[in-house]
Design a binder for these strands. Structure first.
Lengths: 238, 238
DNA sequence: CGCCTGGTTGACTAATGTCAAATTGGGTGG
DNA sequence: CCACCCAATTTGACATTAGTCAACCAGGCG
């Protein structure tokens, strides 16, 4: 079952105390009384595998702070071609859009829980709290930086470089949550990786195999083990 | 000389009154007294063609609001491959980065002028002004939306679709400034377009020629004239 | 007048995509 | 516990798109 193992800390409607990613999340700098007020706006909602949080072009009614699990964020072309624009991890904030409609779709990869906020109350909460607005800015700027890295990857890297850079980047993001490990868990399937890297599933599969033949990685269930970090980082940076 | 023609409104050190893109810029919602205070933080700086505003990995000391001209924003791989991540137009805001270093390079395409702010004073100005912070958020969210569209383009569109989508998108951005026109001016060269679309200059050139043969556009000096908007938009959306 | 830069065109190559078949591994029911 | 099924992945053979390398062309400027 591919999902990150986090303690299931939020069973009920309100969970003021044990959110395991609070310090990483949008609400991470609120003091206790502010946080209680903020919590009153939140609904803790669970989603099952493949369930949609929201879809592109729907009216934006809510924003989300991811607390457990992983989401796939993507855009579709009319003929069905899909581009995954990112994977959201616990602590990530979703749902801000340049218009009144979501600019992409989001669905759960495995089981997932979020703090859901209706847009109106959320906006009213933040609009006179500069600290919160600064934090929103940090989040947006970080996302934008990731998006720019991804443009470089999509436009200018070879298939092998794409896969290597993806694994390195994914490992770093997991390290923020779980600490650095030799084994990189990959909760998403090969098709998701392909749609993230602008490749076909066959090319991704062949590239994994090639990296394994070259003794850079070992493919294990639900992930890969990185053998030669140095050579690997070099390939990813290249 | 490829550049957008805007009245040259800012000759001296301070220009409180005639910035032609003020309503579109980051400072567009400040009242007069706030705007005067804000202006005291600004330096109006000019750059010539190809001059660098800042480069990737330099320490961030300033942020910029573009007032005239066009800038090229890009990232490089160690071997020199380049990805243009965007073109900045008057009103655009540059220089926010997820770390203390710029995450991309920016240089002037033609002659260009900016309002330059040192980071510290700028941050102190905005940090207790929710309206300004909201505006920063809007800007960041809009940029993020454009970046996501570009990821879809880079990962999943064919060369012909890339070029068509680029022309349509560029025309829309110019329309915000100049109003909608049949002739789309292209101040950037073919190599810039190629590096923006993840193609080679030869492929871009061939694709322009192909679109002209198909009577969708006419190539004119410094731009193209769109003949069949409907068929063209369809190709770009595809 | 002719050079220089940027753009275009042509012939060929290489990387990645396409289509189809084979393999793996986990989960389920007997 | 085992056999089977299904979905995901891998592999192979071949097609296609875009890249590479090289030559050519056109306009602007000394």
């Amino acid at each position: 079952m591919p999902h990150l193992a986090f303690p299931n800390s939020c069973d009920g409607f309100r969970c003021e105390t044990h959110c395991s990613v609070r310090s990483l999340a949008i609400c991470g700098q609120l003091n206790e009384s502010e946080h209680q007020e903020f919590e009153r706006l939140a609904q803790h909602v669970r989603f099952g595998p493949k369930e949609a949080l929201f879809s592109e072009d729907e009216m934006v009614d809510s924003v989300y702070s991811l607390t457990e699990g992983i989401a796939r964020l993507y855009k579709l072309l009319p003929d069905g071609r899909r581009q995954i624009i990112g994977f959201a991890l616990p602590g990530d904030f979703l749902g801000m859009a340049p218009s009144n409609r979501y600019s992409f779709s989001a669905d759960a990869i495995g089981p997932l829980t979020v703090c859901k906020f209706f847009r109106g109350p959320f906006m009213r909460f933040i609009e006179n709290r500069p600290q919160m607005l600064m934090r929103m800015n940090e989040f947006a700027t970080r996302e934008l930086g990731l998006a720019q890295d991804q443009m470089l990857l999509l436009g200018r890297r070879s298939a092998e470089e794409k896969v290597a850079a993806f694994l390195v980047g994914w490992r770093e993001r997991l390290a923020r949550l779980e600490g650095m490990t030799k084994t990189v868990t990959l909760p998403m399937g090969r098709q998701d990786i392909a749609d993230f890297l602008g490749l076909t599933i066959e090319t991704v599969s062949r590239t994994f195999t090639k990296l394994e033949r070259e003794k850079l990685i070992v493919i294990v269930p639900d992930g890969v083990r990185v053998l030669d970090s140095k050579r690997f980082d070099a390939l990813a940076a290249a």
